[in-house]
Design a protein around this nucleic acid. Structure first.
Length: 492
RNA sequence: GGUCUCUUGGCCGAGUGGCUAGGCAACGGUCUGCAAAACCGUCUACCCCGGUUCGAAUCCGGGAGAGACCUCCA
């Protein structure tokens, strides 16, 4: 399979500039993205990296790359508060609800995947769980100890950031200067075990009441915060791979520490291109669990959060996110989502119209050049908003042909149809939601019956009856749309 | 406090040294028995103050405001 000729550029967080995308082992591409910690329902913020990296995954595949996409499920290891008093997040929830920790993790990861499916996010090639890779994480801890970049204290193992920084640059990704950080020492409590407060645990001793624990050479415990991603990315993608993604909030300390761990253990930089998606904000502020200002995806789909004016289809949310570039923040509001909903509908209707277009001998629009512009948008760091703008140019053209104001040749129509659909469905990953068909067959037939009665009334110029039917159906939430071809209906 | 980012028309949101994205809303029109829907058209913005330049919303400096990270976080 050949790679489609392209000039794909990717903004690399490591270096903060756009670079030509040249895979290490073309046509193979390895991509690792930080997935969710499964101790709660996915919210709008989780949809952002889901959609962003799905777009990247889809486009790379479209270009002909063979992509192995790995997205982890974190079901152990995240500490709350500081290290000494922290307890595993999953364990805490379990104790509160009297359930097995793994039961919670399974429940929420299933729900997460259902949500992602709704958003038409392709499943990654591998979705490894942290709890299933304890051995690999212990092996990596061992390697870091052997390399001399970690030390053992009371059954825990800490990464020696200060020592690492003597020969490497801890802070290369986040633009931090550790020496400065050390000078502005803040008083931190309960950190006597660490040689320095910039050090972090790579293996943590489990307290007596800690349920999620594994035996290790250092005693009974669990892996540190950042180990899972280093261990699993190395296992499935190799010591050096092409793309590592995640939310911007993970840049420090999570990704910075991942780099340090991999370099310490394997002696080489793990990632060629770091890609970070920006946040979803609500009233200008980051939507997040700790801030308590999040809306879950299920609440969006059902409209059950009191801040929501209505329910929003998954595709509305997907389109809403694709209308912003992945590196920009995107601000939630009902108004913005309703605008996205309408725009999306317009796009889908234009797709339907493609079937009905009549061809001519010439075209009034340079379809080949239009296609080039679409590729140029995607090649420029996956610029979906620009692509969507071009798609709406095509929509306007399609509608003008339909209205008899412009012409298209048969060859151009074929090209327009395939490219339009490729970009809309294959690359942007949009999908027509089965909406009107949701009602029972019987209801649909009854509505059609009412419409034919109304049609006859209109032919008889019996406007009172025609309007009565329209109004009554409207009261039931069924919207009549009169077109030249006859009447259509949809659920409001 | 430190590091970094952002500030675009009624709203959302691209872009970037000259060629004036796009969506939604609004307004005008076409269509329609009326209405809605649909479609077409119109609407020329870039926080403030300096500077560089033939030319800046775009580059540089200063100011104001907002946000992210520095603790788990998508």
């Amino acid at each position: 399979m050949s790679i489609k000729e392209n000039q794909l550029k990717i903004y690399n967080s490591l270096g903060r500039k756009k670079e030509d995308f040249i895979p290490i082992n073309s046509p193979h591409v390895g991509m690792y993205v930080c997935g969710p910690t499964v101790y709660g329902d996915a919210h709008l913020g989780h949809a952002r990296p889901g959609v962003a990296f799905d777009l990247i995954f889809r486009y790379l595949k479209h270009l002909g790359y063979k992509v192995r996409y790995v997205r982890n499920i974190t079901d152990v290891g995240h500490l709350e508060n500081d290290a000494d008093f922290g307890e595993d997040k999953i364990e805490k929830k379990a104790r509160l609800e009297q359930l097995e920790p793994m039961e919670i993790a399974q429940y929420y990861s299933d729900r997460y995947m259902d949500n992602m499916d709704s958003l038409n996010i392709l499943r990654p090639s591998i979705q490894p769980r942290a709890s299933g890779h304890i051995i690999e994480q212990m092996e990596m801890v061992d390697k870091i100890l052997d390399a001399g970049f970690a030390y053992k204290v009371n059954g825990s193992v800490y990464f020696d950031v200060v020592k690492y920084n003597e020969t490497h640059n801890y802070g290369e990704l986040s633009g931090r200067n550790i020496e400065e950080a050390l000078e502005n020492t803040r008083e931190l409590e309960g950190q006597q075990e660490k040689h320095s407060n910039v050090d972090f645990a790579i293996w943590k001793k489990a307290s007596a009441e800690h349920i999620m624990r594994w035996n290790s050479p250092w005693g009974s415990g669990f892996p540190g915060w950042h180990m899972e991603c280093s261990a699993m990315s190395t296992k499935y993608l190799g010591e050096t791979f092409d793309i590592h993604g995640g939310g911007m909030d993970l840049r420090f300390p999570h990704h910075e520490s991942e780099i340090a761990q991999s370099v310490a253990a394997n002696g080489k930089e793990p990632v060629k291109y770091w890609i970070h998606n920006n946040m979803v904000t609500i009233n200008g502020q980051k939507m997040g669990k700790s801030l308590g200002n999040f809306i879950t995806l299920d609440e969006f789909f059902t409209g059950t959060h009191n801040i929501l004016d209505r329910a929003y289809e998954p595709m509305t949310i997907r389109f809403f996110m694709l209308q912003a570039h992945y590196r920009s923040t995107v601000d939630f509001s009902n108004e913005a989502l309703q605008a996205a909903h309408k725009g999306f509908e317009k796009l889908m209707k234009a797709d339907d119209s493609l079937e009905q277009l009549k061809t001519a001998t010439t075209s009034d629009f340079d379809v080949a050049q239009w296609q080039e512009k679409c590729y140029a948008a995607m090649d420029d760091d996956f610029n979906s908003p620009i692509l969507i703008a071009h798609l709406f140019d095509a929509v306007k053209y399609i509608n003008s042909i339909k209205g008899g104001k412009m012409k298209i040749s048969a060859a151009d129509l074929a090209l327009l149809t395939t490219s339009f659909r490729t970009f809309v469905f294959e690359i942007l990953g949009l999908r027509k939601d089965k909406s009107a068909g949701d009602g029972s067959q019987l209801s649909a037939k009854l509505i059609d019956l009412m419409l034919s009665v109304r049609h006859q009334a209109k032919l008889d110029k019996n406007w009172a009856t025609a309007d009565e039917i329209r109004n009554q159906l409207s009261n039931l939430g069924i919207l009549i749309k009169d077109t030249k071809e006859g009447s259509e209906w949809e659920l409001a």
